[in-house]
Computed example of a mutant assay.
Amino acid sequence: MRPLRWKVLAAAVAVSAMVGWGGSALALRGGASPMLVPWTTLIVGVVLGGVVLAAGWAVRQVRLGRRRMDPTRAVRTAVLGQASAYAGALLAGVYGGYALTLLPYWAHAPRREAAIAAGLAALGGAVMLVAGVIAERWCRIGPDDDDDEGNDVAEAGVAH
């Protein structure tokens, strides 16, 4: 299993932001009304981020010798962290791009509300992204390798 790479996560945010921005710009130019993203999207992102951090914290406690854990659970937690990071990157990008599309229409109340809701949803995605990166780092064993090559790093007991 390879560690998360910040360049891949940044590319996921950038590409999904372009898709969110471009798709919503085309839809709005075509006469579609802005979609109001539910405010619960932020809450779901924060709760999922908290769950991922809690699972990662349990693995970190194992690494520090304070607990025992099945190695399979540790590997699953590392995978959960990576999945959260990638999903959060995509959500933050898409909703952020959508919010950017609506910013020029800030004077119109319905579009301003949609922009705020999309911005909050993007924040929820960012929370998932950060929580996933932290949890995945907590699941690493072996020497840290900050150059993102990951050749000698074993994560959650699995060698590359």
Score class of each variant (00 low, 15 high):
5 R>V: 00
6 W>N: 10
6 W>V: 15
7 K>T: 09
12 A>V: 13
13 V>A: 01
15 V>R: 04
19 V>M: 05
19 V>A: 10
23 G>A: 14
28 L>D: 05
31 G>Q: 08
31 G>P: 07
31 G>C: 13
32 A>D: 15
34 P>Q: 04
36 L>K: 08
36 L>V: 10
37 V>Y: 00
40 T>Q: 12
41 T>D: 11
43 I>M: 11
43 I>S: 14
43 I>K: 08
45 G>V: 06
47 V>K: 00
51 V>N: 12
52 V>M: 04
53 L>I: 04
54 A>L: 14
57 W>D: 15
60 R>W: 03
61 Q>P: 08
61 Q>N: 15
63 R>T: 11
63 R>P: 06
64 L>Y: 02
65 G>S: 06
70 D>E: 09
72 T>C: 03
73 R>D: 06
78 A>Q: 05
78 A>N: 05
78 A>E: 05
81 G>Y: 04
81 G>T: 05
81 G>S: 07
83 A>W: 07
83 A>P: 00
89 A>K: 06
89 A>V: 10
91 L>Y: 12
92 A>M: 13
98 Y>I: 03
99 A>M: 03
100 L>Q: 05
100 L>P: 01
103 L>V: 09
103 L>R: 12
104 P>R: 09
106 W>E: 13
107 A>T: 02
109 A>L: 12
110 P>A: 14
111 R>N: 12
111 R>W: 08
112 R>F: 00
112 R>P: 09
113 E>W: 15
114 A>N: 06
115 A>T: 06
116 I>Q: 11
118 A>K: 11
120 L>K: 06
121 A>I: 08
122 A>W: 01
123 L>D: 10
123 L>T: 15
127 V>P: 00
129 L>I: 03
132 G>R: 04
133 V>N: 03
139 C>K: 06
140 R>K: 13
142 G>Q: 05
146 D>A: 06
146 D>H: 05
148 D>K: 05
149 E>M: 02
150 G>I: 11
154 A>F: 12
155 E>D: 13
157 G>D: 07
157 G>N: 08
157 G>L: 02
